[in-house]
Computed example of a mutant assay.
Amino acid sequence: MGELPVGPMARRVVLVTGGSGGIGKATAIGLARSGARVWIVGRDLRRTEAAADEIRAAGPRRVGVFVADLSSLAQVRQLADDVRQRLPRLNVLVNNVGGYWNTRQTTTDGLERTFALNHLAPFLLTNLLLDRLRESAPARVVTVSSQAHANGRIDFDDLQGVRDYSGARAYSKSKLANLLFTYELARRSPDLSVTANAVHPGVVNTSFGAEDPGAVQRLLVPLLRPFMKTPASGAATSIWVASAPELERVTGSYFDNGKPRRSAENSYDRAVAARLWQISSDLVALPAAPQPS
């Protein structure tokens, strides 16, 4: 007989996107240590399997693997299908995957990559898994945003930076979109069967942005690395929000450094959130759903 799960997350099933490295892997390790049955999503099979081995060694718990490039809408949909087929229960979805590109890039769907990966991927995946989460209630959706959201602006006339692109602006906009999505999702789940919260992990020492770094990543980050959080420290708030019993009925909140914080004023604009939800639904071809009262 295998070891029986113990801890606050015993017998709970968790899916962590971007779980093959950095904050995502550290989040998965923390939740596994809390007793959860953890599944991670990564782009590369070999790297994701290696991360799963690390998580098992730290747990020790059973760890499952899904492989998907979440910048592709087709692969997000395939991931959701695979999750529904393989996981009869899903208690926590941690939308951790994200990226930064200094130059404008497009995905196979013709979408701006930062917007596609950081916002549309968690938006679509969450919506496709909502029924499974509700069937597993009480359930939680935890989305990793950033304090950079405070510099974000949703320009509906140039949502994907076709006319005017900046890596920093695209990233800040996507992190603001994470909060608008989180708050709107909370309003659309008033029965609290699924709670929706967002977190800021802090400035963490990872390879984030290394594929296409800007001047800040190239020049400033190496100097700041000794002062950055470790991935384990950066994951602490995600782990707490995903697992803390006292947060079971808390929804529509933003957490930073293990505490609830008020996010930027424009993140609470309901009209912008509703419009962004509708445009995002159209972009990912999501069937229309009733709006919150």
Rank of each mutant, 00 (worst) to 15 (best):
W101E: 14
W101H: 15
A116C: 04
L129V: 04
T107Q: 05
R132P: 04
P122K: 13
V141M: 12
A137V: 04
N118T: 04
F123A: 04
V141T: 10
A139T: 08
Q105A: 15
G99C: 11
D131F: 11
T107S: 06
T126G: 13
L111Y: 03
L125R: 05
N102A: 14
R113C: 14
A116Q: 00
R132E: 07
E112W: 04
P138T: 13
L133F: 09
N118L: 04
L128T: 03
T126Q: 11
L124M: 08
N118S: 06
G99F: 07
F115W: 06
R132S: 08
W101N: 15
T108L: 03
A139Y: 12
T126F: 08
N127F: 01
R132C: 03
T114M: 12
L120S: 01
E135C: 06
P122A: 11
E112Q: 09
P138F: 13
H119E: 01
Y100G: 14
V141F: 12
E135K: 08
T103I: 12
L129Y: 03
R104G: 11
T108P: 02
L124A: 09
W101V: 14
E112D: 07
N118I: 03
Y100P: 10
D109Q: 03
T108F: 02
L128M: 06
N127V: 00
R132D: 06
T103V: 14
D131M: 12
R104A: 09
R132Y: 03
D109A: 01
R104H: 10
A137I: 05
L120G: 00
R140I: 12
A139E: 11
A137E: 10
L129E: 05
Q105E: 14
R134G: 07
T114N: 13
D131I: 09
W101Q: 15
L128K: 06
Q105R: 15
P122V: 09
L117G: 02
R134K: 11
V141G: 10
A137D: 08
R140F: 14
A137R: 10
E135T: 04
R134T: 06
N127D: 02
P122W: 13
R113P: 09
T107A: 06
E135R: 12
E135G: 07
P122N: 12
Q105P: 10
L130C: 09
S136P: 02
A116V: 01
F123R: 02
R140L: 13
A139R: 09
T114Y: 10
R104T: 11
P122S: 13
N102E: 14
G99T: 11
F123Q: 06
F123V: 03
N118E: 05
L130P: 04
H119A: 02
G110Y: 04
G110E: 01
L130G: 07
R132G: 03
R113F: 15
T107N: 05
T106P: 10
T106L: 15
N102M: 08
N102C: 12
T108C: 07
F115H: 01
L111F: 08
F123N: 05
F115E: 01
L129F: 07
T108S: 09
N118M: 06
A137N: 08
D109C: 02
T107C: 05
A139S: 15
S136W: 01
Y100H: 15
A121V: 02
T114E: 11
T106K: 13
L124E: 08
V141L: 12
H119P: 00
L128V: 05
L117Q: 02
G110M: 03
P122L: 10
G110K: 01
T114G: 11
P122I: 08
